[in-house]
């Protein structure tokens, strides 16, 4: 009984934590809903896409790719390659009972907030909240997008919320040689972002930076005794 209550409390804490994600997801979902409508998607089709795919970058790519089936399937796959690194991180940190649920809800922002916990129930609450607000945003965009578009400044400020979210989650990780990983990761991502390969840049940052920094540490350690 007590265990069940504590599990439920963890879930609620996770759900509450998702409110910081919601600040960014609702306007992004609204934008997706509006764009899909402008591109000729049906209302139900748009909401179902958010409900089934639940991956912002891929969904926006699907709109721009239109009806071309092969690129529509392959490009979202590449855009989401970085999620493999997120999943590896989560797999090593949590003792997962229901990996399929965790996998479905693992987005950039959920991954970022997952650094703060080792509790799977918290993660479920967090993912449920993120999912709910994303689908809610899309629904609002589908049905009330035109009205909301007149509040452009407010929407752009809400979209900005993801920047401070990532910054505040990054700061506590900046210890020792991890500072170099962050600097390298940021530089790689920025370089690719400049060229228009944002998703690839994030993936490369997550794979190359740790390898380079760890190799640097290993060499330094080898040189020291001499």
């Amino acid at each position: 009984m007590i265990r069940k209550m504590s599990e439920r409390a963890s879930w609620y804490r996770g759900f509450l934590a998702s409110f910081s994600i919601a600040l960014g997801y609702i306007p992004a979902g609204i934008t997706f809903g509006m764009l899909a409508q402008l591109s000729g998607w049906g209302r139900l089709e748009t909401i179902l896409t958010s409900g089934c795919v639940f991956a912002g970058a891929s969904q926006f790519a699907m709109i721009s790719l239109g009806s071309s089936l092969f690129p529509g399937m392959v490009i979202p796959l590449f855009l989401n390659l970085r999620h493999v690194v997120y999943s590896l991180f989560v797999a090593s940190r949590f003792r997962l009972q229901k990996p399929h649920i965790v996998a479905f809800g693992l987005t950039d922002e959920v991954f970022a907030l997952a650094q703060k916990t080792k509790d799977e129930r918290f993660l479920w609450g967090l993912e449920t909240g993120a999912y709910f607000f994303w689908v809610l945003g899309t629904t609002v965009g589908v049905f009330g997008g035109d009205f909301l578009a007149s509040y452009h400044l407010f929407v752009s400020s809400l979209l900005f919320s993801l920047t401070p979210l990532f910054l505040v989650l990054l700061l506590p990780t900046l210890r020792g040689s991890r500072i170099w990983s962050a600097i390298l990761g940021g530089a790689i991502a920025l370089f690719c972002h400049t060229l228009g390969y944002t998703s690839l840049g994030i993936l490369l940052a997550g794979v190359l930076s740790p390898l380079l920094v760890m190799e640097g540490k290993r060499r330094k350690g080898r040189e020291r005794p001499e």
Binding site: L88, F111, R178, A182, G185, A189, L190, G201, P210, V213
Partner: peptide, 15 residues
Amino acid sequence: LDHAASALLAALFVT
């Protein structure tokens, strides 16, 4: 993974 977490968060922030 510890290093990857910092690198990814920095990458997400920058982008």
